[in-house]
C-alpha cells in the first residue's frame, strides 16, 4: 500500500475489540465514574470502575470514537479487572511508554494490549489510544487520595 504499513496499526485483534467491545456498559451503584473526551477530535468515554479493598473488581465503558480509541478502552477494561490499584497504574505507565516508543518493562504479559504497539508509529493517533487509560489513571488517582 505504501511505506506506512496500515497493517501494523489495524491489527486483527484491534478490529475484533472494536467490533465486539468487551465490557461495554455502565456500572451502577458506588462505582467510580470518569468522563473524558478528546476535545480536538470529539472522541469521548465514560469509564466506570468498581474498587473494593484496593482492587479493581469490575470495569465497564461507554463512548464513541474511532477503532483505536474504542478497542483500547475495551482492552484496558479487560486488563485492569482483578488488578490492585498500583498494578493498574503501573500498567498504564507501561502503556504510555509503549505509545511513546520508549523502552518498557516487557516482563509483564500484556496480552491483547501488545497489538496496540503499532499505534506508536502513527503519532496522530496516540491520543486516541491513550484516552481510556488517562480516564482510568484519573479515576484511580482520585480514589487513592
Amino acid at each position: 500500500m505504501s511505506s506506512k504499513n496500515l497493517d501494523t496499526l489495524y491489527r486483527q485483534v484491534i478490529m475484533d475489540h472494536y467490533k465486539n467491545p468487551r465490557n461495554k456498559g455502565i456500572l451502577e451503584d458506588g462505582s467510580l465514574t470518569i468522563n473524558m473526551n478528546n476535545p480536538t477530535c470529539g472522541d469521548r468515554i465514560q469509564l466506570t470502575m468498581k474498587v473494593e479493598d484496593g482492587k479493581v473488581t469490575d470495569s465497564k465503558f461507554e463512548g464513541e470514537g474511532c477503532s483505536i480509541s474504542m478497542s483500547s478502552a475495551s482492552m484496558m477494561t479487560q486488563a485492569i479487572k482483578g488488578k490492585n490499584i498500583d498494578d493498574a497504574l503501573k500498567l498504564s505507565k507501561i502503556f504510555s511508554d509503549m505509545m511513546l516508543g520508549k523502552e518498557y518493562d516487557d516482563n509483564i504479559d500484556l496480552g491483547d494490549i501488545e497489538a496496540l504497539q503499532g499505534v506508536s508509529q502513527f503519532p496522530a493517533r496516540i491520543k486516541c489510544a491513550t484516552l481510556a487509560w488517562k480516564a482510568m489513571e484519573k479515576g484511580l488517582n482520585e480514589n487513592n487520595q
Binding site: 500500500m1 505504501s2 506506512k4 483505536i68
Partner: peptide, 21 residues
Amino acid sequence: VHPHDVATVLDAEGIAVRAGH
C-alpha cells in the same frame, strides 16, 4: 468507518483530509 480511520488510511496514500468535529 470512523472518520479518524478514514483519515489515517487516506494519509497512508498521501491524501490529507480533516477528521473530527
